[in-house]
Amino acid sequence: MSAVLEQIFQVGFLAAIIRIATPLAFATLGEMFSERAGVLNLGIEGIMLLSAMTGFTAASLSGSLWLGVLAAVLTGALMGAVHALFTVALGLSQHVCGIGVTLFSSGLAYFLYRLIFGQQSVPPNIKGFETLPIPILSGIPVLGPAVFNQFSLVYMAMLSIPLAAFVLYRTPWGLSVRMVGENPRAADSAGVSVIATRFQAVILGGALMGLAGAFLSMAQFNAFTFGVVSGRGWVAIALVVFGRWDPWRSAGAALLFAFVDALQLRMQASGLGHIPYEAFLMLPFIFTIVAMAVMSRNAVAPSALLKPFRREER
């Protein structure tokens, strides 16, 4: 047990948690904005994959990582708009549309990647983001090198949590988002455009999912592989439930999940006896399902989640 505790407080371990949490935090915040406005986005898995692909491709062709990030964010926003077109403008089933967006986006990602890069025995890679130590802060013992010697995208994720909370709880637009997610009829009477607000929230959410994809292919793996997302989008959906649709709690949930994931990686590496490594790989998923069962009693989903809004139907 003490060996486990020792590992937990290693710099490398803390840094790993934060790196694993970063794409999850982006994705979870993105899904949260969408759901707070009343739109479940099951397209997240495919949107992250397509963004990871476009980001990687743009960076690899232009040589600029930030151009890659921009491409990924725009891809995410565009696919968010597509999901909103189907679910908000046309009022179609959010479950099935989301699966459709995921199937379409993943298919398109694979198709375009194969078209651009061909079939290669060794997948092409790029020189991804390098860590950017923050002066003074990175000198703090243990915490410094773990938290303040990270990729710039990690800092963006850290800043986006308070920013998301501020936008959601302290700005008029955030109020509109919460209103259209809780009581679209009342929001409409108060002069808030339900359709426009939902569109904006889903597009913003898509852009954040794009950032998650960008991190995976341009900071974590520095390559695009077909398994680059491997269920992280689905996990983000569960983390939103687990985080009770709140930016702080959702980010906390992402950190907790990252802790379990980093722990399983360590236990896997330390060759913990004869336990197959797959047992560790499934651990985070089982943990999430159990956590959802435990938390669900307190879970308060936005009232209008999954409900399309049609003004003429009263």
Binding site: L40, L42, H95, G231, W234, V235, I237, A238, V241, P276, E278, A279, L281, M282, F285, I286, T288, I289, M292, A293, S296, R297, A299
Partner: peptide, 23 residues
């Protein structure tokens, strides 16, 4: 029994079963 969203739980289970098969 627990009012857990069936979409999310059935989706996550796909990964669990896949890793069990791999194991």
């Amino acid at each position: 029994k627990f009012r857990v969203d069936d979409v999310v739980s059935s989706l996550l289970l796909n990964s669990v079963i896949f890793y069990a098969l791999m194991a």
